[in-house]
Structure formats: C-alpha cells, structure tokens
Design a protein around this nucleic acid. Structure first.
Lengths: 147, 147, 147, 147
DNA sequence: GTGGTCTAGACCACA
DNA sequence: GTGGTCTAGACCACG
C-alpha cells in the first residue's frame, strides 16, 4: 500500500501514519490477519525515523486496529465493539458538527459528506453487509500492495 | 458563557478553548456581533495565562469565527462560505469515517450520531432555517467595503 | 470626502486615516490650502476616538502633508521635496519589490501595477503635467536620482 | 546569511526578520528548498528571544515563503501564485503611489525607483528568466499530493 | 483599558 | 535536537 505523508502538515507524522493505515483497512487494502511491514522497513520506505513508526504501531494497538505478534510483528486485527466505537466516533465528531452548525451547514449537508466518504472508502462496509464477514479471511482480491 | 477546560487533557488548552467557543456559537450562547471577553479577563476567569487565550483568539480569527476589532477586541463573526466549509469538514471527517468503516458501523449508524449531535447542539441551525440569519454584521460602522 | 476605515484591519486606525487623507490629496478630493474637519467632528463622523484623529493629523504634519493653523486647524499643505520624496518612497518600496521578486513578478509586472495605480488615482499628476502646478518639473525623462 | 536587526527601529523585530529573509530569498542568498536555522539557533545568533524568531517563521509560513517541515524545521518554499501576488503587492502599493502623486513624482520617477531596486536585488529574477526556476520542491520525498 | 510585542524559563511531544 | 505549548512579567502603541 502506498502511504502518503505530508511532512509539512500540522498533523504529527505518526498520526498521519495511523490514519493512513486505518484508511487502508477501511478500503480493504489491508485485511484482517495481514502483517504490516517491519518498523525498520517502513521507516526506510517513507524516509522517517523508526521511533515514529513504532509510535504509530503502538497507538494502533491501543486503539484496537492491530495486535503485536512476537514473531510476525504488527498484525491487523480490528476490534469492533460497536458501542464503544460509536462513543469514540461521537466524541471526535462534536467539534466537527459544532463547526458545521456555525457555518450554516444543515444535517443534510453533513449527511451528504458522510455518504460521499462511505461511497469513496466503504469497501469493508460492502463486505460486511453482504455477510461475507466475519468469516474473516475471504481474500479473493486482497493482494495488498507491498509490505 | 461558561467555558470548561480540562487541564489534564492531552488536548492543548488553547485548542479546547477554541472548541468550546465554537460550540458556544453553535448553541447560540454566542451570537454574531457579540464581543468576547478581553484576553486578560478571560485568562483570569478560567485561571490560565493571557497568551494562551490570545492564541485561541488568533486561531479563531484565522479560521473565520472571530474578527479582531481594534476598538472592541474579539468579535464573533462567522465566515460561512459553504463550499469551503464542506471541504474543511470533509477533510477532518475522513479519518473518522475510515474508523467507522473499520469498526463495522454502517452509514446509518454514523447518520444517527450526526443527527444526535445536531439535535443536541443545533440551536444556530434552527435560527438559520427560520431565516433569522444571515445578518452577519449588526454594527452600522463595522462592515467596511474592503479589508 | 468619504473615509473608509476597517476596524478589523491589522493596520492602525490612525494609519488608515493618514493613508485615506493622502489618497484624498492624490485624487484631488483635497486640495492645497483646504481645511480638514476638526478633530472632534471627524472623530464623531467615523465613530472613533479623538486621540486617534489627533495622532493622524500629527503624523500628517510630520510627514509634510498638512500644517497646523491655530485658527483653522489642520490645513492641507503638501511639502514636495522631490529628492526626499524619492528616498522615502524607495525605502518603503524595498520590502515590496523583494516580495515581488520572490513571487517571480518581473519589473514589467510591477510597472503595470504602478501604472494602473497612477491611472486610477493620478488626478494630481494630470494637473502637474498640464503645468497648472509650480512649473517646476515638466521634464518627461529626467535625472535618475535614485541610489 | 547575515541578518541585520535594528533594535532601535519602531518596526517590530519579527517583522524586520521577515523582511530580511524575504530580501534574502529575492537576492538568492536563500534558495528554494533550503533549510533555515532553528529558532533557537537563529535567536542565539542575533541575540533575541526564541519566540520572536518563531513568530517571524510563523508569519513567513502564513505568507507563503516558508513551510514547516516536521523533520527539518523551516524550509524556504515560495508560493508564487502570480495573480494573488499582484493583488497583494498592489494593495500595499496604494499608499506609496498616493504619496508619490502628492509629492509630484511622475510615474516615470516611480518606474525608475522600481527599476533601481530590481537592479539591486533581482538575482532571483535573473534565474527565473533563464528558466532555472520553478523547481519548487527539490526534495524527493517532500512534495505530497495533498496537504 | 485593550491587544501587540518581547523576554525568560519551563515542560513535553515529536522525530 | 526540534518546534509547540504554557507560564510570568514587562513595556508600548493604540484607542
């Protein structure tokens, strides 16, 4: 998978890394059980410090997207406790909705944004709704780019 | 308006301040044209340093929620360029939707979160839809043709 | 004359006032010998503090656009020492030209800007060239005079 | 590059710093992609406070002369949107041209000032016209598709 | 009285 | 080591 990092962003690099990987999972470029590149390799690929990659993996683990396997390294393993997820998303969404309201966006406007993003990224969703999950590894097309 | 700051949060104080004020605008606790407390005043009120408040005001200005009037100080003045707003919100929402998809939340789940938040905070929205807005500048001498 | 003040500008009000008045002179809305409004009246008209108007008048006097008459108040009286003027303009122009160069604007681009502004504001210039002003300089291509 | 600060000037130090650096870019003493000294370093070098340098860098970033690279610090990166640049320059030039007109300077006089300054500072211009620019980002990993 | 600027010194997250 | 944040206290220009 190709990871885009903007070194001039105000977002921390490890944070961008997390987000990109989460996006990769959402778009089925990474699938459950897949192994992420080693810290050192990914760091070299992107041209960043090893510590930074390490931090990203640690955060992903804490947030339940990855588990650390002693032999394989970081392995995708999405923890989907719906109630907890909703609460998390809700909390992060408060400032965004507040801004939307201030800018005179209606809930329909926001709904369109959400739908647009689901259309764009929601590969995982399609699978889920076709009941293909959680029969976990149903990988006919999941030849993820490079590791 | 009562502003709550969590000093043990990992979110920067000035950032919390920004969010609280934006929330205040969304819920009509602050309305367009209203003057915010002076940096010193607000700093004293919530027990933080003047400069921290100043930074919050500066960010709010830059993001188009406030303008600095040389006579009155910081004045609520929401810049509602819909197109720009949508783009901003969309960008900040990408990681959230990605996470939602990973956690198997459907777009309907997310829609409910959005609606819940609109119900909770959307005072401003109600006004807007009743046509009471926009009256961006109330002051007779405050809206010069060019900046 | 109508004076436009932007209270949200980063430029000080007295400074804007000065610039507007100078612009008024350039466009012949104020002419030599004309009396400016009293400090109090202008302050009331614009809705600003008397001190601010006072400061503007003081600066205009120092810069040689106005003289203070004990009975009439501030009187337009433009001091046009060409050599001194050139040196002043040159100094203020340095950062602008530096910026222009950085942005890849050619000297022709800047020349066009200058000409555009002369076309827009140069009432005074027309008089000068018609010989209505102190015959002085009626030379279309004179001494370089710059550093 | 040697930066000269006049501590007795009425111009803010951070503003002088900005102007000096812009001048440095114009004269090719700084070139695109070059890394500026760290805030602490530069502050020590010229004997001012870290925060003052920081403010200068922040302003330069906001005005599109510099970007903040999370790995390298402040990097010269001139944003040359010609249309925007012209509008900016034009606005700052209005008071200068107004003054010039008042002082009976012809457009030719001003043109000479402009040319003089271009002759003195326009190193960057020469390169640009030889086609050596634009190569805005030299770094292979520094130019992500989206910010 | 306001915000803007500058200084000084501190801690922390990031890389 | 970097910049980002926060604090504290000071002076000044502006209004």
């Amino acid at each position: 998978m190709y990871l885009e990092i903007d070194f001039s962003s105000d977002e921390a690099i490890y944070q961008q890394l997390c987000n990109q990987i989460i996006l990769g999972i959402a778009t089925s470029q990474f699938s459950d059980g897949e192994v992420l590149p080693s810290v050192r390799q990914l760091a070299d690929d992107i041209g960043i410090n090893m510590h930074t990659v390490n931090k990203a993996y640690t955060v992903l683990k804490q947030e339940g997207f990855v588990r650390m396997d002693r032999r394989k390294g970081a392995v995708i393993s999405v923890d989907s406790d719906k109630k907890h997820a909703i609460e998390t998303i809700r909390k992060s969404m408060i400032p965004l909705i507040a801004e939307a309201i201030c800018r005179n966006l209606t809930r329909e406007d926001v709904g369109e944004i959400v739908n647009g993003l689901y259309d764009e990224y929601g590969e995982y969703e399609k699978k889920a709704q076709k009941g293909e999950l959680p029969s976990q590894y149903r990988d006919e097309k999941d030849n993820p780019a490079h590791a």
